[in-house]
Amino acid sequence: MDDREIQLRRYKSILSKYLDDQSEQTLYKGQQFSRKMIEQKISPEEAVSLHVSAMESLYPDMPQEFKNSYAFLLEMMIGYGFAYREHQSLRSRQQQLETEIEIAANMQQTLLMGEMPTVESLDIGAVSKPAKKMNGDYYHFVQDENDCVSVAIADVIGKGIPAALCMSMIKYAMDSAPEQRMQPSAMLGNLNRVVEQNVDPNMFITMFYGLYDSFNHRFYYSGAGHEPGFFYNAENDDFGELYTKGLVLGVSKKPNYREYSKDLQKGDMIVLLSDGVTECRSSKGFIERDEIVAMIRSNLHLSAQEIVNTVYRELEKMQEFELRDDFTLLILRRKV
């Protein structure tokens, strides 16, 4: 006996029982049977054809009009059959794509994993989370042999795969910079050239680049249209804006990036963020920059890493655990 015959028998027995008793119980059996048919990928028109065969064998003397009407119904179901098969093939393609994205996301993670600097004078914390699987935010620390630390934070416009691909380009461009220790304005000028030549006209990248000199505890920095960070002055217990003026990367051929500097005293802090932090929307509206400052302020007693983790958790909670944009927060604090 082949599958179709077994199915037909089973279907016929349930159907004839139902025609006899019309009980809930038999109806339930029918439901279970239909679930099995779905599992076996039986198409809608095959299901109808099963019903027709069962009816023909139960009622051999069925009026001709009924038989004709079944033929008509079968014709009607063919379109549904096509839709069903298309749905099946889309589902398997979607699974394939998801697997591919998973692999890409892992690759990206590996690409981005860099060592955090360990400099005696600095306490450093970093958190970066993608809204979807791939991250369009980027941060990067480099420590040179003189214990100077450079830090970059970048945000690629948009989210998801295009942003992540673009970000990988930035990573390579930075790695191939002629020297590791580069003046921030020169670094941004270099990267702008790479981005300007290689991205879609609607794309751009915002970036903040800084260099911390461990000898004189001076922080040099430049910005390319990036969301301003904060500077915490420990002595006055006061947060100020770390303002930079400069055009985003990828728009103009020859932008000028001004360089700024700040002297850090013990306990002073540099806070860098992506606009995913201030573009967070909670149920009550946008989360304002003041609120971020307040969150950092109330956790000042913690280490830099604990502060960024705590702020991330609080913001995540305010957005009901659903990030709308990639999120990156970095803190550098002078220890000694």
């Binding site: 751009f204 390319a224 249209g225 301003p228 003026k245 055009l247 985003v248 728009v251």
Partner: peptide, 8 residues
Amino acid sequence: EITGLDEV
């Protein structure tokens, strides 16, 4: 303003 686009 932040993105510097106001100047271009």
